[in-house]
Write a protein that binds this DNA or RNA. Structure first.
Lengths: 231, 231
DNA sequence: GGTCAAACGGACGATGTCGTCCGGTTCGCA
DNA sequence: TGCGAACCGGACGACATCGTCCGTTTGACC
């Protein structure tokens, strides 16, 4: 098919041992990040995976690449939730479930919140297309729920980011306190409902939804984009 | 009075140059922490203050001591806000202002949020008395606002911590986005109002309010408690 | 089974931060 | 003015992490 050198049959172009090690590294990374935070030494991840540091760096040149790959599955769950939310015939329920799913993921998958915020700001050029679509979907979701009279009219799409980021940080500060997380989500959702709109709100943030890690594109879990560089 | 060697007249027992340098260090620390985060190198703070590292370490043996001292003023503002909230004849307004003041402080004083959460978990034994009083005051504040029918009945004191911590994290993630911060506060306050109570809430967190850095005790800004140790 | 590229992993130099030590300086008091 | 204690600050060794280099091993294909 694609005119590669084609000595290797496996789909991802990795040798069997390499692929096996890659998997081990991702498992180890999730465990280590959950336990010691996202800034844990790379060597710790390598040791836990039973590989050398060089193997780790070869597969994931930067910590960022490792983090993204380690939590690609969770990111994708977020993205799928967005699709499902749009498919829900009840606009409010779709909206509500999106928020709840994203927050539940942040709550249950330790280490993921850090990845979530880490992926947040520096995603301006990265896989722009998928993010643009996610942004559009979010706005559609919001408008539909507003048109149905369930979501308050002065809700601004950027409020989604406000909600997700603040919740994110709460679970980071209190990783074991699920009750606190659930409470915050419940409070936020209640105040997002149309009938909760009593006073006026201050102006919305200029935050772009495009930067929210809700975009489903396969590239995240794939090979490290060797162009990715942290400064 | 206290039978000191008494060669030094100044109240804090520091020589004039030492006191001057201490002030410089605090100013520099606030600036550096705001700019580079709370984990900025101690040497950076020292350089900015125009003193040697040794001077910095002599005055503040641990980073923690420096952080506490640097933001003691902000902590005290928080604590004063609590007192004022209790003095307000309108229970709801008192409650509202407390939340708003604390959040405004977090929003405007860059670096303070990090100090706020840093002070949060490891304050179990530290100046326990003041914290106990703060806890009692908070509960009084909540009960009064509930009795007045302004604060929803299912509001739990620990929700204050939920609100402050999540807001704290939001401004940490988006230090420049004041609109996002104000929005979150407005949403939270609206959902705390009695008339916003529509559905049932999940059970409250077991979080102790005692650990919230809202306690005003002079010890924070004073000499570093040499017993304080990080592990 | 043989060949070779790909993958492996430990060692290593570079870098940055920490916290202390000590010789020189300055302040406060007589 | 003189003295001594307190203070100052740069230098320094210890330590952790980073990311690369390179000799060795392993898997895929013939």
């Amino acid at each position: 098919m694609v005119g590669e050198s084609s000595r290797i049959a496996s789909q991802d172009g990795l040798r069997a041992d390499a692929r096996r090690n890659r998997g081990r590294i991702l498992v180890a990374a999730r465990a280590v990040f959950a336990e010691h935070g996202i800034d844990a030494p790379m060597a710790t991840v390598a040791r836990r995976a039973g590989v050398g540091v060089a193997t780790l760096y070869r597969r994931f040149p930067t910590r960022d690449a490792l983090v993204r790959a380690a939590f690609a599955q969770q990111m994708e769950t977020c993205a799928r939730a967005l699709t499902e939310a749009l498919d829900d015939p009840d606009p409010w329920r779709g909206f509500q479930r999106l928020i709840e799913t994203a927050c539940e993921l942040q709550r249950e998958e330790r280490g993921f919140p850090a990845a979530f915020v880490a992926a947040f700001p520096d995603s301006t050029v990265d896989h722009a297309r998928a993010r643009q679509r996610a942004e559009r979907d979010l706005m559609t979701l919001v408008r539909r729920a507003q048109a149905a009279g369930a979501l308050r009219a002065d809700f601004h799409p950027s409020d989604i980011a406000v909600a997700l980021l603040s919740h994110c940080a709460l679970v980071t500060a209190l990783p074991h306190d699920r009750a606190a997380s659930r409470r915050l989500v419940a409070y936020l959702l209640q105040s997002f409902r149309a009938e909760a709109a009593h006073g006026a709100l201050p102006p919305p943030s200029a935050l772009s939804l495009r930067s929210l890690p809700l975009a489903a594109d396969g590239s995240q879990g794939a090979q490290p984009s060797n162009t990715a560089q942290r400064t």
